[in-house]
């Protein structure tokens, strides 16, 4: 049924009819059950009328935020900056939040992060260069358009902020090296969240985790993870660098300063491509 209000009204009238039937037959148990259902439906109807919105959340509720640790009062953008510097690569909000929770204190949620990103571009456009850095999207290597799913830092060179076909993998491996180094340097003090994050990342890299004969996986050894990630990186790096460098050259030539940070809305390019195909 399309309109939720209609659906509820139909439910209510169905239930009223069924309650009448049960009451007439003297079936008090059933009538009681149905009355409870009727109360629910009526309550949902009231809510809908009050808010004009269904009581249904559109999607699963936000992830539970980490408990607030006092004493860390850095603004959220500083948290993001810190996490990105640890990874050294463009990253998705979810990974940024995971890195933050694993190594730093303070509150940072994925929803906070997405509102932050909108502010950054607005702030830059109102007074460019007023801040020492901006959080900006990565750029697609072909169209030089923004890749909004990935966050970068404006002070990074274009080569680091551009995403080619191989870049997500090299960035993932580089980021894993960053996480492994951070776990390694904190030694015994590494938090369970940090070890878990490293395990989760390393589990997908060939030979990064030792498996015993029975298939049991041990806790990740940071040094081994770094070596395994580096080994795979060696396979991809040259080709990836070439693509990124070529795209960066193109960007410097054809994009304005702000486009080099926030990407270009290249409708013209798209149209050209569409014709060419």
């Amino acid at each position: 049924m399309t309109d939720p209000l209609d659906a509820l009204e139909k439910s209510i009238s169905t239930l009223r009819r069924a309650i009448r039937d049960a009451a007439t037959a003297g079936d008090t148990e059933r009538a009681g059950e149905l009355r409870a259902q009727l109360r629910r439906a009526e309550k949902a109807w009231d809510t809908l009328i009050d808010t004009g919105e269904p009581a249904t959340p559109p999607l699963w509720p936000e992830p539970q935020a980490a408990p607030v640790v006092h004493g860390s009062r850095l603004p959220a953008r500083e948290h993001v900056h810190r996490a990105l510097m640890l990874l050294g690569t463009p990253a998705a909000p979810k990974l940024i939040v995971s890195v933050h929770e694993a190594f730093f204190s303070g509150e940072l949620s994925a929803s906070k992060l997405s509102s932050l990103r909108r502010d950054e571009e607005r702030s830059y456009r109102s007074s460019p260069g007023a801040r020492p850095y901006y959080l900006c999207p990565a750029l697609a290597h072909d169209l030089l358009s923004p890749v909004r799913a990935l966050v970068t830092i404006s002070t990074w060179p274009l080569e680091q902020r551009i995403i080619g076909p191989l870049s997500q993998r090299t960035d993932f491996l580089t980021g894993t090296v960053g996480v492994a180094q951070a776990v390694g340097s904190s030694g015994e003090a590494a938090t369970p969240a940090a070890v878990r994050l490293l395990w989760r990342l390393a589990a997908t890299i060939p030979d990064a985790i030792v498996r015993s004969a029975s298939g049991l996986e041990s806790a990740p050894d940071p040094q081994r993870v770094i070596e395994a990630a580096q080994a795979e990186l060696d396979v991809h790096t040259d080709a990836d660098r070439a693509t990124r460098a070529e795209a960066a050259r193109r960007a410097r030539k054809s994009l304005s300063d702000d486009q080099q940070l926030f990407g270009s809305q290249l409708h013209n390019v798209m149209r050209l491509q569409a014709q060419r195909a």
């Binding site: 659906a7 169905t14 239930l15 259902q37 249904t56 959340p57 509720p61 539970q64």
Partner: peptide, 28 residues
């Protein structure tokens, strides 16, 4: 409305209208 399903899954209507908001309140 009259006969909630005998399970094991609940009706989508119940999930969306009643259960999801209640779990959300619990999480909050």
């Amino acid at each position: 409305d009259i006969c909630p399903p005998a399970g094991p899954t609940t009706s989508p209507q119940f999930d969306n209208r009643d259960l999801a908001p209640a779990i959300k309140r619990f999480d909050a």
